[in-house]
Every structure is written in structure tokens, then in C-alpha cells.
């Protein structure tokens, strides 16, 4: 995995996937059993944490509770033997950047969660390191504060022009902040790409199901000859008795892959009531309607499975009624059920 200079790089994955371990390896808090860690051209496996020129923001903030905010921010500089005047200037600059100049004399115990978060950031930025490592820094904040700090972190990243490596299990944070995302699962790298790439073209079933809320609908399917628009038989797929027409390119790739069992993936927002020239149409009964005000999530139970659609609230949909949902050909995604890998572009 390679992280570009000045990038906002997000490590995303469920808990226990190894994202924090990856970050701690980069920080020098854990030792790698094998493989190399490089910062620039320099191999840093044997370099102590303090000599890697990195700063880390911990999930718990790890502020020194017995020191004032000022001393907390100054600690790293003092350890590096900066002069007193220099420390004072740098600390005040950092505090001004984060808007915590008023709090310098307080102890961490007297601060709110958001303020502590800023102090933790201040402690990191004051040293002007090559890269910032952040371990779920927003997970201890309430949701309103989290949204605010998200924007602030993006601003900070732009202002500092430094590399950010950010660990989170929250896909919203990953999507909104990251220039690139690395999705991890069970200690393995699943996919690296821009948020849009990862969302639009997940490389395997794990990424497909992990990114997006509500999650992508995944239906068991197998390759089949299906009737095309002009009633001729063409290569396609069948999912739970429903014929799925595929765009020519995808159909070819399916043939090339030689996959015998498939998973069909459709994002909830790609299921609609009125789709012209649909690839497939699912008949079912409405099981659940969850209205969010601006949209509604409709769960439709099919013969052997169920799908969730994200629909506009202008449609009145009754619980228990029958409904037809369709998907356009370009929105059908295919995965090899055996290898769990993506088929197609």
C-alpha cells in the first residue's frame, strides 16, 4: 500500500480488521514481523517512533491529564529541545489555528470533548511533522460535533499541506474526508481508490457490502440465456427466477470469467419504480417502509430473498402491498460467488 505525499488517506474497515495495527506500525508503536515500512525513500522498520517525524492523534486523545493545555502542546517541542521563545511562538500559533487560545491554562479535565479533540490536534500540528496519524479521532464526539470536526479536519489538511493517515470504521467519515480510501478486512487490503471509485466499482463482495448505507443488495444468481428486448436469447443471468439482461460488455466478461455461481449487486438507489428498458424487474411484497423525511427505504420481499430500495417520498407506498422494482442495465454489478471477486469493469 502506498500513500502519496500530502494525501488524506483513510484506512477503513470493521473493528478488528487491522487498520489500527497498520497505523501503529507506521507510527512505530508496534514492530513488523515481516515486510518493510518506508517514509519517503527511508526504511523505518528499525527507526524509533520519536525519530520518524510523525504525529499521532489517539482515539482517547491521550492528553497528559496533569499538564495544562499549553504544556500538553509544548511537550513534544520540549522533548526535542526547542528554545523557550520558539516553543511559546509555535504553541500560540497552533492554538490560534485551532481556536483554543483561551484554553491554554486549563487542564484537560476541565475541557469538553470537542475542546480536548482540538488540544490533541494542537499537540500534533505544533511539531509540523511529515505526516499525521489519526486513530478514530472523532469516535468519542457527539454526532453534531463530529460533523463540525470533519469539516475542520479537511480544512486543516488543506492549510497544513501535510499527509494525513486516518483510521476509521465510519464509512461516512471515509467518504467525506478521504482523498483515497483503503478498505481492509481480516488483516488484508481489499481495495484502494478514491471514495467514488470504491463506491461505484467495489472489487469484491466485502467492499460491496461494507460501503454504502443501506448496504448494496446482493442476490444469488447464475449465468443464463435470457430474452433480450427483441425476444432473441442472449447471455445474461438469472437471480431467483428473475431474468437479468446484461450490457454486452459485462456479458462477455462474465463468459470469460467462467464463473458458474454469481452474486448480483444492486445499490438501493438504483432500484426504481419507473425504469425505462430495465435489465430486470423484481415482483414482491412490501415488507417494511422506513421514511427518513427526504427519502424512504422500502424493503421488498421476493420469493427467496429481499431487496431494499431507496425511493423518493413522493411515492406513497403501503406496507403489505405488492410492488415492482426495476434496475437499469448499467447499474447491475456482478461478482463471482466462488472467488467473491468482481466481474466486469
Amino acid at each position: 500500500m502506498e500513500i502519496q505525499d500530502r494525501e488524506f488517506f483513510v484506512l477503513l474497515g470493521p473493528s478488528g480488521c487491522g487498520k489500527t495495527t497498520a497505523l501503529r506500525l507506521a507510527a512505530g508503536l508496534e514492530e513488523a514481523n515481516e515486510g518493510g515500512i518506508y517514509i519517503g525513500e527511508r526504511r523505518v522498520n528499525e527507526v524509533a517512533a520519536k525519530d520518524r517525524d510523525l504525529a499521532m492523534v489517539f482515539q482517547s486523545y491521550a492528553l497528559y491529564p496533569h499538564m495544562s493545555v499549553y504544556d500538553n502542546i509544548a511537550f513534544g517541542l520540549r522533548m526535542r529541545k526547542h528554545s523557550k521563545d520558539e516553543i511559546d511562538k509555535l504553541v500560540r500559533d497552533a492554538a490560534a489555528t485551532l481556536g483554543i487560545d483561551e484554553l491554554l491554562k486549563r487542564k484537560p479535565g476541565q475541557l469538553s470533548g470537542g475542546q480536548r479533540q482540538r488540544v490533541a490536534l494542537g499537540r500534533a500540528i505544533v511539531r509540523r511533522p511529515q505526516a499525521f496519524l489519526m486513530d478514530e479521532p472523532l469516535s468519542n464526539l457527539d454526532s453534531k460535533m463530529r460533523v463540525q470536526m470533519r469539516a475542520e479536519l479537511v480544512r486543516l489538511h488543506r492549510e497544513l499541506g501535510a499527509t494525513f493517515i486516518y483510521v476509521t470504521h465510519d464509512q461516512v467519515e471515509a467518504m467525506t474526508m478521504g482523498s483515497r480510501i483503503a478498505v481492509l478486512d481480516a488483516g488484508r487490503l481489499q481495495q484502494v481508490g478514491s471514495p467514488q471509485e470504491v463506491y461505484d466499482r467495489p472489487t469484491n463482495l466485502f467492499v460491496a457490502s461494507f460501503i454504502g448505507s443501506p448496504a448494496m443488495n446482493l442476490l444469488e444468481a447464475e449465468p443464463a440465456q435470457v430474452a433480450a428486448q427483441d425476444n432473441s436469447k442472449k447471455a445474461g443471468a438469472r437471480a431467483g427466477g428473475v431474468d437479468v439482461r446484461l450490457p454486452a460488455g459485462l456479458a462477455n466478461q462474465l463468459k470469460e470469467s467462467g464463473a458458474s455461481s454469481l452474486m448480483l449487486g444492486i445499490r438501493p438507489e438504483h432500484l426504481g419504480l419507473n425504469v425505462t428498458e430495465p435489465a430486470a424487474t423484481f415482483d414482491g411484497q412490501v415488507d417494511l417502509v422506513e421514511s427518513l423525511g427526504n427519502e424512504q427505504h422500502v424493503t421488498l420481499s421476493l420469493q427467496r430473498a429481499s431487496v431494499i430500495a431507496r425511493l423518493s417520498t413522493t411515492e406513497r407506498i403501503e406496507h403489505g402491498s405488492s410492488l415492482q422494482l426495476s434496475v437499469a442495465p448499467e447499474h447491475v454489478q456482478l461478482f463471482n460467488a466462488a472467488t467473491k471477486e468482481r466481474i466486469g469493469p
Binding site: 512505530g28 517512533a49 520519536k50 499521532m56 491521550a62 497528559y64 513534544g76 499537540r123
Partner: peptide, 24 residues
């Protein structure tokens, strides 16, 4: 994590003891 943070901040064993362990 206080120790880990101090290590990244550049504290050695002795500084860790003096600035973290003893006050805490």
C-alpha cells in the same frame, strides 16, 4: 496511550518516567 503519545512526542525512558509516571 499516554506513554505511546509521549514516545511519539520524543520522550525517552527517563522522560516518560519523569513527566508521565511520576506525576500520574
Amino acid at each position: 496511550e499516554l506513554y505511546e503519545s509521549a514516545r511519539i512526542d520524543g520522550a525517552g525512558r527517563w522522560s516518560e518516567f519523569w513527566h508521565i509516571t511520576l506525576p500520574m
